[in-house]
């Protein structure tokens, strides 16, 4: 499976891991995501997809909703390599 392509976060399935490549959009939103730990280079796992979705980012668990989910581009990683 090719894992080197970029996807919007919304396309990930439950349980999948990914590295965040880019967070774009309103500066306020990008800043807020950075404060919460979602920034380029961080690794996350989708616990529940959909809207709102549930993510595991580092040591914390976030609930997210909104069109901005499309603006988080991620690069999927295999579960074996994750963490």
């Amino acid at each position: 499976m090719a894992l080197d392509h970029l996807l919007p976060l919304e396309m990930l399935q439950a349980g999948e891991w990914a590295d965040v490549e880019d967070v774009s959009g309103e500066p306020e939103w990008v800043g807020r995501m950075a404060e919460l730990g979602v920034r380029s280079g961080c690794r996350l796992q989708v616990l529940q997809p959909g809207s709102p979705c549930l993510l595991q980012v580092g040591g914390c668990r976030l609930c997210l909703r909104g069109a901005c989910l499309m603006q988080i581009l991620v690069r999927p990683v295999t579960a074996a390599a994750a963490w």
């Binding site: 939103w29 919460l36 668990r61």
Partner: peptide, 10 residues
């Protein structure tokens, strides 16, 4: 206003 992105820590 813009529907703000909803984000909440669990």
């Amino acid at each position: 206003g813009e529907t703000p992105a909803f984000v909440m820590e669990m």
